[in-house]
Simulated scan of single mutants.
Amino acid sequence: MYDLRDVKNINLEGATCLKEDTAYKFIDQTTGKTLVAKFISGYSEQEDEHLIAEFKKLVLLSGQPEIATAYSIRKAEVEGLVKPCYIMDWVDGQSLQTFMNKREKLIYEVVLDVILQLSSGLEKSHSHEIHHGDLHNENIIIDQNGYLKIIDFLWFDSKKDPALNSQSDIQNFMRIVNELYEKCDDVDKRRLSLIRKHCQQITTFKGLKKEIQLLDEISFDFALLDDKPLTTPLTLFKNMDGIHNLRNPIQTRDLEIPNKVIPEFNEQELDYLEKQKNPNQSGITLRHLDTLIDRIKANAHQLLSSKLYPLEQIGLIDWQITINNPGDMFTGRYDLNFDIWFTSKFFKWKRVFELLPLLKFDDVDLNSYLLDE
């Protein structure tokens, strides 16, 4: 077993106290590097073996860009007291809390960058079973170039269930995401809403960075849709039975036009219908342009546009409608046909929502949904 008592003590007299007598900044005389001695809380010498095992796992993270590098376990003397500590890099920057306090608002791109770096660092640490256990805004440092480092691992408690520390990290990550979200304006909040919602549902950091990147790919277009048009792609996803690709649209044929899109007859149309009741005695058949069909098409197009046009604007779909009258002019049944073609962007959206089922929506018949105001 490694015995900490055999290690030469570091004298921290004159070092800069960083935090409540638990961390000191000093210059290493051999290398000239600025380092930090971080005292290990709750430690007793009977726990040396567990401490060494935990530190070895922490060392595996050395060199990771999001985590402050740890070098060694030592004993340090300060104000006449000798306590175990570990030595890590000094990160020259400001805490996440200071970073947030200095800015009235944060833009989407900055918040996304912080969330991605933080999720990446926590995924790496948890993959080595290193849980922080005290993840708060002061333990996250951002340097002048915007790079993030997580500091102050090994808040030592060998008796604590590791699962509790893991859950603590997840809950604190959720809190940090919420605080970053609240620093954004309304437009950027809309862009962040899917990412925020997903982060509130996680049970592990594994794969989280990739999932956030997927959501980022659709976030800009998503923010342009309000809740009503957003229902449309979800309905289309659920109504895509069979194989649909860029060449195969959803098609509806001979759908009966609802009465609400059929306008009242105008004067010329009423006159035509009246004359049809009394055919010309000469046997000449009267002809009339079906003006009603154009007005029905305009009304039907307006009805469907409220749900389909926003998706067309952001490049998810193309669509068209046609109106047929297989019966008598003005009085015969008018049928609606429509085609919806999907773009490559639509299939990306579909894939994202399949992998990350963030929005729930009841199964709805597409025809009923599109023709319902």
Rank of each mutant, 00 (worst) to 15 (best):
residue 116 L to F: 03
residue 334 Y to N: 13
residue 22 T to Y: 07
residue 186 D to S: 11
residue 20 E to L: 07
residue 234 L to M: 10
residue 92 D to A: 12
residue 222 F to R: 01
residue 80 G to P: 04
residue 354 E to M: 12
residue 166 S to I: 10
residue 326 P to H: 10
residue 243 I to A: 14
residue 198 H to I: 03
residue 315 G to V: 00
residue 293 I to Q: 13
residue 360 K to E: 12
residue 144 Q to I: 06
residue 163 A to D: 11
residue 17 C to E: 14
residue 227 D to R: 00
residue 308 L to D: 00
residue 234 L to D: 04
residue 146 G to S: 06
residue 7 V to R: 09
residue 46 Q to E: 13
residue 62 S to N: 14
residue 199 C to S: 14
residue 108 Y to S: 02
residue 41 S to G: 10
residue 271 D to S: 13
residue 128 H to Q: 13
residue 256 E to V: 15
residue 233 P to Q: 02
residue 12 L to P: 04
residue 52 I to Q: 14
residue 275 K to Y: 11
residue 49 E to R: 11
residue 200 Q to V: 09
residue 18 L to H: 03
residue 208 L to R: 05
residue 109 E to G: 05
residue 1 M to A: 15
residue 166 S to D: 12
residue 276 Q to M: 15
residue 167 Q to W: 10
residue 208 L to C: 04
residue 69 T to E: 14
residue 183 K to Q: 04
residue 13 E to T: 06
residue 183 K to L: 06
residue 373 E to A: 12
residue 223 A to P: 01
residue 311 L to P: 05
residue 141 I to Y: 00
residue 327 G to S: 04
residue 317 I to E: 08
residue 51 L to P: 05
residue 275 K to R: 15
residue 88 M to F: 02
residue 123 E to Y: 08
residue 292 L to C: 07
residue 193 S to N: 10
residue 123 E to L: 02
residue 367 N to A: 15
residue 43 Y to T: 13
residue 5 R to Q: 08
residue 71 Y to W: 14
residue 276 Q to C: 13
residue 72 S to H: 08
residue 196 R to K: 15
residue 328 D to F: 04
residue 48 D to S: 11
residue 286 L to H: 09
residue 117 Q to D: 09
residue 208 L to G: 00
residue 167 Q to H: 14
residue 141 I to Q: 04
residue 52 I to H: 13
residue 144 Q to H: 09
residue 12 L to Q: 09
residue 155 W to Q: 12
residue 315 G to C: 07
residue 139 N to R: 10
residue 70 A to R: 07
residue 251 Q to G: 01
residue 352 V to I: 15
residue 84 P to L: 01
residue 254 D to Q: 11
residue 70 A to G: 06
residue 77 E to I: 14
residue 63 G to I: 01
residue 269 E to R: 07
residue 158 S to D: 05
residue 189 K to N: 09
residue 52 I to T: 08
residue 156 F to Q: 02
residue 260 K to M: 08
residue 306 S to F: 13
residue 147 Y to L: 12
residue 227 D to G: 06
residue 178 N to W: 12
residue 268 Q to K: 09
residue 80 G to N: 09
residue 150 I to H: 05
residue 151 I to W: 00
residue 346 F to T: 02
residue 115 I to H: 06
residue 340 I to N: 03
residue 177 V to S: 15
residue 306 S to M: 11
residue 315 G to P: 05
residue 248 N to I: 14
residue 19 K to F: 13
residue 342 F to A: 04
residue 155 W to C: 13
residue 183 K to S: 02
residue 31 T to Y: 02
residue 254 D to M: 00
residue 339 D to E: 11
residue 162 P to C: 01
residue 126 H to C: 07
residue 83 K to Y: 12
residue 209 K to F: 05
residue 198 H to L: 09
residue 319 W to C: 09
residue 114 V to F: 06
residue 33 K to M: 14
residue 322 T to E: 13
residue 62 S to Y: 10
residue 6 D to F: 11
residue 13 E to S: 08
residue 120 S to I: 00
residue 199 C to Y: 03
residue 159 K to C: 07
residue 161 D to Y: 05
residue 44 S to A: 15
residue 159 K to M: 05
residue 136 H to D: 08
residue 113 D to I: 04
residue 89 D to S: 11
residue 334 Y to W: 03
residue 15 A to W: 00
residue 42 G to V: 05
